[in-house]
Write a protein that binds this DNA or RNA. Structure first.
Lengths: 348, 348
DNA sequence: CTGGTTCCTTAAATCGATTTAAAAGTAGAT
DNA sequence: ATCTACTTTTAAATCGATTTAAGGAACCAG
């Protein structure tokens, strides 16, 4: 067990002060470019700061100044590339503004979300960017965070909160996808995936229904297939789309890309050729969408840009705590690829 | 502009103390279950803490105790699902141990890496988990972090540092992929992607060469195709694999999945059917690999598990600063899917 | 020499929790 | 009543940077 060097204590302002023959107050002021300090003194101090490799202790400064230079980022699912990109965008924009990101992954568990949140709270972040876990308890979150916390909620609505909110234009996205299918000639179009409890699912279903009605098609209750927004569950639900007694759907609008990819797997297993015999659309435009076979027609949303937007919204709120609540609906675009096609002649 | 409530100051230990008629020292001790405190007093204090919704100020405590409850996580590319999963694993394990993750994305830029790092340093994290940007300046990193910092380096070797190191078994992975192709009957096998400067690329090429030599195949210089590890650049490089004068390769071991998917795109554009006329393997097993057409044969490495492992290694180091340097090589496995096939009879 | 400027520097308080030595309180024994 | 032993509480210092009021120096005008 060699001793190594005895871990030199970190350099403090007082150490610099001593060498320069001034007080630590002077060093502090010099460092922060106060006009109170003689430029000769400042130069000496700055040189010495560099020479000793001084590292600012933001924690001490924040304690005294009652400020904070961190923002907490709570993400429901970092394994999902959509949210990972979102996180990357947030971090990038926060770093640019001089903030550090406190990361908290919640794995879609409301309990873990509460635990992670109370741990993050102890670090006194200036604000929170929260992409809530499914089935989050809005009230519990509010109790923990307090009424006047600076919070930006992303993606999922939290009922009865007054926090800023950034969300995709779910309704319009689903309408775009549905209209695209209608234009191709489809009339019997299913909506697959998502839970009725989720606000984004409700909105997407709404867009879907609107598009159908606008085209004079009355949606059939049998076309609404509920399942978890995962590839596996979606694949299992696929049987509900296949011919029974009634005329079956010729296309499916899926809650998101994961569901769409699952549906494509499920259909392939039954020898239904997606893009030839059956049309499928997704939502999110995750990276897999472009390389799937066939490449998935989907709704794109620029998650990295959303992350930057979220950070900017929160920073805006920090600067103007009193400004009115913001509710931003981010636009989405339709990306047509090869999973959509006209209905087969037999079905038309 | 309604005023709202005037933002009640946060509760401090002193506030609790006052109500309970004791000193803040007593509250502090009670909170931390010191045997010095009378159980009757402790009960009163705990009740009051809960009643006022006290939130611990870890910053103040850390300042006094000269400790830290954060760990900095620097990630070269959060958009890459492999690293996003890794980050999720790290965060999960750190949270379990009571640490909070300070996130820093570096976007593969050494300059940004330096900037992000010095910003994180000011928050005095207990340690660092660093997945270095390409072409990182090892010396510059060491100058910034200091010799005795607690650092775990992931994935890319940093020359002449004494930090703990966690890396995939790149050599064995590439050997597994190459052996798989050899067993299928291939003799002319290319290696595509990656830069010679990167340590992981060197190791993978080594495994590839070893496997060839062991099978009595002398690698041809023309089989080594260098390109950036991105889908786009790989697609563009594909032409180098196709028949010219000399007999051309019938299979390709790719540096990673992104390259493999790019190569598949490039070949498809030239009507070469991967999985029928040509075999391709990847590395990483990102989510797209499973849904690509054909599904990609690749090397899997459990990035989330690696993240947890990384966190555990760092935490171990924090507890035992003097222990010998760790160098962990994580095992990988071959995932055979449909992008690999025997060589076409003509070429055999 | 006095009073008034201007310029620069610093002592001391502060942020909130922790820690330790010392004090205060309680009980029991003599 | 006194002493010892033990339990419980607290005053005060501490971590490192910031801030402000006050002080010192230098200079000029009258």
């Amino acid at each position: 067990m060699s001793a190594g060097r005895p871990a030199p204590r970190r350099v403090r302002l007082a150490d610099i002060a001593e060498v320069c023959g001034v007080s630590s107050a002077t060093v502090s002021l010099a460092m922060r470019d106060s006009p109170l300090v003689n430029h000769k003194t400042r130069a000496r101090v700055l040189t010495e700061l560099k020479r000793q490799g001084y590292v600012y202790n933001r924690g001490a400064a924040n304690l005294r100044r009652q400020t904070s230079s961190t923002v907490a980022l709570l993400i429901n699912d970092l394994s999902n590339p959509f949210f990972a990109e979102f996180a990357a965008g947030v971090d990038e924009a926060l770093a640019q503004a001089g903030y550090v990101t406190l990361l908290g992954g919640t794995s879609e568990s409301p309990e873990r979300q509460q635990r992670v949140l109370s741990s993050l709270l102890e670090h006194r972040p200036a604000g929170f960017i929260l992409s809530p876990a499914e089935l989050s308890d809005s009230q519990a979150l509010q109790d923990l965070l307090g009424e006047q916390a600076h919070v930006l909620v992303f993606n999922r609505e939290l009922s009865r909160t007054q926090w800023d909110f950034l969300v995709l234009d779910n309704r319009r996205g689903a309408r775009l996808a549905t209209e695209h299918l209608l234009q191709l000639g489809h009339r019997r179009i299913a909506f697959v995936g998502g839970h009725t409890t989720s606000s984004s699912c409700k909105q997407r279903r709404l867009g879907y229904t609107e598009a159908l009605r606008a085209a004079g098609v009355e949606p059939d209750a049998g076309w609404l297939v509920e399942c978890a927004p995962t590839r596996l569950d979606a694949a299992a639900s696929t049987r509900l789309l296949l011919p029974t007694g009634a005329p079956s759907p010729t296309a499916a609008v899926c809650y998101n890309d994961a569901v769409a990819l699952g549906v494509m797997n499920g259909l392939a297993a039954k020898d239904v050729r997606v893009g030839k015999d059956f049309a499928v659309t997704g939502f999110d435009d995750i990276a897999e969408a472009a390389v799937a076979a066939p490449a998935l027609t989907t709704i794109a949303a620029d998650p990295r840009g959303l992350g930057q937007r979220a950070a900017e919204l929160l920073l805006g709120r920090l600067e103007a705590p009193q400004r009115a609540r913001q509710r931003i609906v981010a636009s989405v675009t339709l990306k047509v690829r090869h999973s959509t096609c006209p209905p087969p002649p037999l079905a038309a």
